[in-house]
Design a protein around this nucleic acid. Structure first.
Length: 850
RNA sequence: GCCGAAGUGGCGGAAUGGCAGACGCGGCGGUCUCAAACACCGCUGAGGGCAACCUCGUAUGGGUUCGAAUCCCAUCUUCGGCACCA
């Protein structure tokens, strides 16, 4: 019969009983309400991209938000006044489509989703200031979209224009990003997207093209800057004026302007091409060519953009039966219309230089047009071209170029443009790929554009006092490709604010990217009447110190937000050029199918089950531990148990220092050869080295290695648990530091253990989250001795233990004295001995005897 | 085609000029238990050797260096973005 020594069983770590309790406590105490008027502490505006209220918070949201929350908590522990708001990007197509499908109002659908998501967001234990919440579908928010629009209209930054837009036969106008895939289909119904000519509202963002290329002062990821730079697409070159030649049917002398990045190749222009939309096409077409040209232009208009733009497609085009005169040599060259030239870029017309442009080459080959080489590397002048020569070779020169022959390409181009400029026939020019922002949408669930069309007065802005133009709730929003608001007579018909006569409202709504172009300013004063922003708060709190969100918004939201800030600046609303000082893009969690997680794909992972099983702290920690935050990757819950075990160990270490491990015979004893004093020193060194590393990792958002370091420290503590060291001051400090370091990442368990420690010590209760981040004792991170690897010819052959403050001479002597080194040297004399990193490593170099 | 990111054990990943594989998962062995679960301990890149150890090894091929996963050149692969932008 065995006698069992009964110890009270350690209470199990049970997140379900801890987490909701602390969430309620924090909430009640208002721990995370930010006093925006506090002038004493340094301010830190931390912004994370607000979610679209699709209905459920999935694991992807957690991946974005919980590390951001850890950053907020880390900064608070440094005494900063942190503002971390949240809101909902509540307008947009999915609400409208879901509403149509389920036959409910988009507003009801959206608002009930928001209620649900608010509840789910709280289970993360995130420190959002809910008082600052913004919901963009609220009239109190979108009225300011309208107000901004009217300001921009007044300032000439908004204008209306008829132009071809992407149009889905089922869903109407689509945003650029809602057209997917190489075949340009509608993201929702898969139908092929067409072009339609519609009168649309635009914001004049191209005005900022150059300014947008300037990222100085912004701490943004390089890939995002590169993507925006590409999107803006600045190219430098020249604009050259060709005149049309006179003929039987045409008087001649009309100006045809072309943009080219290669003015040096002007002598190689053997024909010209106009885009089908070019205004001079009809005028220049010879009567006998008219039928064919008209047919071609008509066909080009109905063709989808991708068909036109596909590089695989054969070049097509027809001759107009008219000629242009090359301004540099007076040569007559034929004019074609072809859809490989785009109406919306440059001047919509090109000089074609087949010898030095692939597209022109293909066209010239097909239609038997002359190909004249005007740039050649030395010795290549007479060689026949088999394809367009684009490369820039050393020593290449202009050939067949009149008086410019012999010049280098760069200087030749400049000389040609300079000569033309003197005659008023050319100039240096810059063109951008960036277009003005088309903001009109033929959808219901968005901000009504606040203008009125009067038969007498034309376009009349809605007066300020009549804002907001409310979105009617009762509209038949079911999609039929037609504009829903146009079907609502009471919305549609108004009297003109100027003349009182009959007038109609604009029935388009705004692109929902407008909502997200200024929401962080509104967070500072969500209820403010009379102005969209509180100027004093905006001036003190913005630009945003740190923005976190997905890289998928690189050229949409993040570019719009910059443009909008510049427009606000130009109408005198803010005194800043850029909205976000520092940007971090976290990666994306993909579904098990490797695809982006989204409700419409049905591959979302619900965190609720994981939270129920492991608790929010484990889920938070696991998401941070998976890998580098900016990397993302496919979701797999494998391994979450390891993180949970870590928290269990922390629980055990804090609450039961003197316990023994049931399965470990060594438990409770110090390792062989280590006395208590040495063990206590080791513990203190481990704790402070961890603190140093963890602090740096938080600052760099390296959460995965931060957690790894905490695990290592916990493993050290676990080894000493139950030993004579366990109750020592060093043990106590290591435990205390562990909790403080873990607090931003796992707020609930650390709060619980902190409060238990305090009550055990008889201290007054206070939150760990109001504690100050501990300071590293640098002296404690230095060990008395260290191990130095010794290499012979770059291969590690031995490790020697030396005093930390060993001199270089002594270290070299010790390294050479190593038996293994001596054996390898076999009597040879070292050529040199290198010490790296201040004696962190020794490399002994000898001649290899072979 | 152009721009960008990345290739390291069975897996997620660590190390950004100085001990490759920290930390964790999985696997194997063990302790605890009547048993299971939980928990804990040990081992775990490949090949060789009884062993101390040795050899190889960070997509591929070259280079720079006393020393390269890390820097340079070329190539291959994967992912993201753009795509007839003159």
């Amino acid at each position: 019969m065995t006698v069992q020594t009964e110890r009270p069983r350690l209470e199990r770590y049970d997140p379900a009983s801890i987490e909701p309790r602390w969430q309620r406590t924090w909430d009640k105490a208002g721990l995370y309400r930010t006093d925006l008027h506090d002038k004493d502490r340094p301010r830190f505006y931390l912004l994370t991209m607000y979610p679209y209220p699709s209905g459920d918070i999935h694991i992807g949201h957690w991946y974005i938000i919980t590390p951001t929350d850890a950053i907020a908590r880390f900064h608070r522990m440094h005494g900063e006044n942190v503002f971390l708001p949240i809101g909902f990007d509540a307008f947009g197509l999915p609400a409208e489509n879901a509403a149509i499908k389920n036959n409910i109002n988009p507003r009801d659908w959206t608002m009930s989703n928001i209620d649900n998501m608010r509840r789910q967001l709280r289970t993360m234990g995130a420190t959002f200031d809910w008082e600052a919440e913004v919901v963009t579908a609220d009239p109190g928010y979108y009225r300011w979209n309208q107000w901004f629009f009217l300001q921009f209209l007044k300032a000439g930054l908004a204008y209306r224009q008829t132009s071809p837009v992407d149009w889905c036969p089922n869903d109407g106008t689509l945003a650029r990003e809602q057209v997917e895939g190489a075949d340009r289909h509608c993201w929702r119904c898969g139908a092929k997207v067409e072009k339609r000519d519609l009168a649309q509202w635009y914001l004049k963002v191209t005005r900022y093209a150059d300014e947008l290329l300037d990222f100085s002062g912004l701490i943004w990821p390089e890939p995002i800057k590169a993507q925006q730079t590409n999107w803006i697409g600045r190219s430098e070159g020249g604009e050259i004026v060709f005149e049309t030649a006179s003929s039987e049917h045409h008087a001649g002398g009309a100006e045809l302007r072309v943009f080219t990045t290669r003015p040096d190749t002007l002598f190689g222009a053997t024909f010209m091409v106009l885009a089908p939309e070019h205004p001079l096409v009809a005028e220049l077409t010879a009567p006998d060519r008219k039928a064919e040209v008209d047919a071609y232009v008509a066909q080009a208009a109905i063709r989808t953009e991708i068909d036109r733009l596909s590089t695989d497609r054969d070049k097509t085009g027809v001759a107009l039966g008219a000629d242009a005169i090359n301004p540099v040599n007076g040569e007559r060259i034929p004019i074609f219309v072809a859809d490989y030239v785009l109406g919306g870029y440059g001047t919509g017309a090109i000089m074609a230089v087949p010898a030095h442009d692939e597209r022109d080459y293909a066209f010239a080959e097909k239609y038997g047009l002359p190909i004249r080489r005007v740039v050649a590397a030395p010795g290549d002048e007479e060689r026949e071209l088999e394809s367009a020569y684009l490369a820039h070779a050393a020593g290449e020169r202009l050939v067949n170029s009149g008086s410019y022959t012999g010049l280098g390409a760069g200087e030749g181009g400049a000389a040609i443009v300079g000569a033309l400029e003197a005659q008023g026939k050319g100039r240096t020019a810059v063109t951008y790929r960036l277009r003005d922002w088309l903001i009109s949408r033929q959808r219901y669930w968005g901000t009504p554009i606040p203008v009125i069309y009067c038969e007498r007065d034309g376009i009349v802005p809605v007066p300020d006092e009549d804002l907001p133009v409310r979105l009617p709730d009762t509209v038949d929003y079911r999609g039929s490709g037609e504009n829903p608001l146009a079907r609502d007579e009471t919305f549609l018909n108004v009297s003109c604010p100027q003349c009182g006569g009959p007038a109609r409202r604009e029935t388009d709504t705004m692109d929902t990217f407008i909502d997200s172009s200024w929401y962080w300013y509104r967070y500072l004063s969500p209820e403010k009447a009379g102005s969209p922003i509180d100027r004093a708060l905006v001036d003190t709190w913005t630009p945003v110190d740190q923005y976190t969100g997905g890289a998928e918004h690189a050229v949409m939201h993040l570019l719009y937000a910059r443009e909008w800030t510049k427009m606000m600046r130009d109408v005198g609303l803010v005194d800043q050029d850029e909205p976000f000082k520092r940007l971090f893009n976290q990666g994306q969690i993909l579904g098990l199918d490797g695809e982006r997680m989204s409700k419409s794909r049905g591959n979302t992972v619900d965190p609720d089950d994981l939270v129920a099983r492991y608790g929010a702290d484990t889920v938070r920690l696991f998401l941070m531990f998976m890998g580098p935050w900016d990397q993302g990757g496919p979701w797999s819950p494998t391994g979450i148990g390891g993180v949970h075990r870590f928290l269990n160990r922390v629980w055990t270490i804090v609450l039961d220092a003197s316990g023994r491990e049931p399965g470990d015979p060594e438990s409770g004893t110090l390792p062989a050869g280590v006395d208590e004093a040495a063990a206590r020193l080791q513990l203190r060194q481990a704790a402070h080295r961890t603190l140093k590393g963890v602090t740096a990792d938080y600052e760099a958002f390296h959460f995965n290695t931060m957690i790894a370091k905490l695990m290592e420290l916990a493993n050290v503590l676990m080894r000493f648990r139950g030993s004579s060291v366990a109750g020592s001051p060093e043990w106590d400090e290591a435990v205390r530091l562990s909790l403080l370091m873990l607090a931003p990442a796992a707020p609930h368990i650390t709060e619980e253990l902190w409060s238990r420690r305090q009550s055990a010590a008889g201290a007054a209760p206070s939150s760990i989250h109001t504690e100050t981040w501990p300071a590293v004792d640098e002296a404690a991170t230095v060990e008395a001795t260290r191990e130095v690897p010794v290499q012979v010819n770059g291969k590690v052959r031995d490790r020697i233990v030396v005093a930390s403050d060993v001199s270089a001479e002594d270290l070299e002597r010790a390294a050479l004295a190593s038996e293994k080194v001596q054996a390898l040297l076999a009597g040879r004399v070292p050529l040199k001995v290198i010490q790296a990193g201040g004696g962190r490593l020794v490399n002994i170099v000898v001649l290899d005897a072979g």
